[in-house]
């Protein structure tokens, strides 16, 4: 059965004396390497140049806000349940009167942590979220000095407030968030 067009039959005949010298094969190999000397280089000079990501790229999570800058998360815990790596923990709290400008619904996440050392960036949290509160952004390559720093708190995950800092908000949203944000 032929799986691909490129499959080649291996020649298993014993080598002749001339072939055992490997002269032709060495010459062929040398030609291949030298021809690569003049080929276009594929390197991307990272900090200056950046690769364009595909639309489905899954980077670091962000916790979303609505257009008035209120946190969308209601601490329902569906993301934590969906997470195969069990990286997400949260604590819910009730919205007090006077906090309506901070939280969209009556319940909100008082504590929300993602352990980035466990996260496998599968995107299930995003799929599970009924409130469009968590998204995988296009940020990646996090760095830190110790393991503790990789447990991202809510402050690390929250997107900048679109009212106070619309530029930073746009940058954080990137091209990834395509779903309508208001709903």
């Amino acid at each position: 059965m032929q799986l691909t067009q490129r499959a080649k039959q291996v020649d298993r005949r014993p080598m002749t004396q001339l072939e055992k010298l490997y002269l032709w094969n060495i010459a062929k190999g040398m030609w291949i390497t030298i021809s690569h000397l003049f080929k276009r280089k594929v390197t991307i000079q990272y900090p200056e140049q950046k690769r364009t990501f595909s639309k489905v790229f899954r980077g670091v999570q962000i916790l979303n806000r609505d257009e008035e800058g209120r946190e969308r998360c209601t601490a329902c815990g569906l993301c934590a349940v969906a997470c195969p790596a069990e990286a997400i923990t949260m604590e819910a709290a009730e919205r007090q009167p006077g906090e309506e400008h901070l939280y969209k619904e009556e319940k909100y996440a008082a504590k929300y942590e993602i352990n980035m050392l466990r996260c496998i960036f599968c995107g299930y949290c995003e799929e599970a979220c009924p409130k469009d509160a968590i998204y995988l952004s296009q940020t990646f390559a996090q760095a830190n000095y110790d393991r503790k720093g990789f447990i991202y708190k809510k402050e690390d995950l929250l997107i900048p407030n679109p009212k106070e800092d619309p530029d930073a908000y746009q940058r954080a949203v990137g091209e990834r968030v395509t779903k309508p944000l208001s709903s």
């Binding site: 390497t33 030298i34 690569h36 280089k41 594929v42 390197t43 000079q45």
Partner: peptide, 10 residues
């Protein structure tokens, strides 16, 4: 680097 289509130290 060049033989492997890279750029090398720069």
């Amino acid at each position: 680097a060049f033989l492997q289509d890279r750029i090398g130290p720069n």
